[in-house]
Design a protein around this nucleic acid. Sequence first.
DNA 1: CTAATAGTGTCTATTAGACAGTATGTT
DNA 2: AACATACTGTCTAATAGACACTATTAG
Lengths: 278, 278
Amino acid sequence: MSKTPFSEEEFLKKYNKYDYDLLSVTTDIIIFSISHLNSDNYRKLGEKKCSVLLVKRNTYPYINKWCLPGGFIHINEDLETATKRILLDETNLKNIYLEQLYTFSSIDRDPRMRVLSSAYMTLINKDMIKEKLSDNTSWFNITIKETTKNSSETLLTFYLENDKENIEFSVMKILKEKTSNIYDYKVVKNENIAFDHAIVIATGLDRIKNKIEYTDILFNIMPKYFTLGQLQQVYEAILNKPLLSPDFRRTIKNKVEKTNKVQKGSGHRPSVLYKYKG
Amino acid sequence: MSKTPFSEEEFLKKYNKYDYDLLSVTTDIIIFSISHLNSDNYRKLGEKKCSVLLVKRNTYPYINKWCLPGGFIHINEDLETATKRILLDETNLKNIYLEQLYTFSSIDRDPRMRVLSSAYMTLINKDMIKEKLSDNTSWFNITIKETTKNSSETLLTFYLENDKENIEFSVMKILKEKTSNIYDYKVVKNENIAFDHAIVIATGLDRIKNKIEYTDILFNIMPKYFTLGQLQQVYEAILNKPLLSPDFRRTIKNKVEKTNKVQKGSGHRPSVLYKYKG
DNA sequence: CTAATAGTGTCTATTAGACAGTATGTT
DNA sequence: AACATACTGTCTAATAGACACTATTAG
């Protein structure tokens, strides 16, 4: 039992927090959703694309580059509270699925000063956003090309596009340690994404890909009623690969509930609308 | 394109980081290993227990309570560098598996001031530590009792013990959101664990349980050569449930390599020593 | 009729759980 | 001989992948 010359109360009074290094902490949030591209053929289903909400910076550093929504956390709020505040600011949405992704801490990730950033991610149905996005905010559709370099390295090339702009960046995904399934991400090419947000986006997409295998998070992206074909398209957009429809229907069956509604008018057999069986 | 009255260089020069709230950031590290309990019967295998390294605090706050090894991160190191420094201090080990667990950020988690903490975890073979542990540091064997309260709540009661001390604490594990498999942990009973480290330990153990299903991290806890019986005991200790030996052998088979060594002298059929097939 | 998606059924290969039964050391 | 673990083999149920085939609409 250690002896101390004064009480806990006295100790805390004398305690000077400036004896330690202090850091700024931000939270960045990856807001994922799905875009429905229109088809040229009236019968064909429009393609679906995973999309992400980005903000164009109007101050230094990285002026005019795109970054994730985010901001400094205040001294009287925890990370999740801060993230919800930012999410409400950007999308006017609340009470939605939010997950801590990773805390990024490279010492040079912000040229202004040492900033540590905890990234969160969320999946939303962007049609729920009634308000017009502010001018500097935009959804980008994501296309990813994966190139396997060797057993522990994969090159991920991201193509982000909206009506006005095309952005391309690449990230090398490197297996960090053979026993752990943990990866390092290194930016290989990037001109338009601010800070280390290219890595944050890559990390987030990987997390989602993993999580949709064993959770129901993709239902957060869906409207209340949907066809199994639409649901499959969303899974395919996120997983970045086609699925076989009979097999998809079989495995998803116990997560959804048939309704008595039907979607018609599409030049082919109408499909039953389902809803998520919470 | 926004206009700005001065250059980026000028901007950074004028930038005053004290315009923003600053926080202290610590890293806490859960160092897991396995203890081999001796058997009363010369033939029986000694039981194995998951164990964790704790440090007894000798200053306020939480004086004389146990906590995870950890410390403040310096302005010139990232989280992983800081964690490795602390791990080297405590165990003299380097180049080992290390994984970021979660960043804990409740505003009242430290009575001194606002402290944000990123927790890391690692699995080691504690026989590799040659040096004597310092007096205030000790391994505790963990026994967990799980009680299901309802579909979204499970009470976890932790019994930690070493030669001198028994610690008990309980944590309620609450499903946070039905689509996501994310849990909240709330301390129900705790007298001897400092800060929010009871929650950190509970979170870490859950992460490991999940990860050993699809990674090889448990091999970090094993010595170079081991029998399949020993390996199974380690899996059982972490998963907190018995496994069927024929099934365990079948599923683990492609991860290990038979050697020509054999372990004898145990009152029963000798067992072949295996090693991890990296 | 046609193009396109909706939806059903089935064959096969793989995997997980349960467990019966044999092998072989030490005391 | 007895005990305790080491190790093998097998039956079954559940699951995943591939794919053939039928149903139904708008134009």
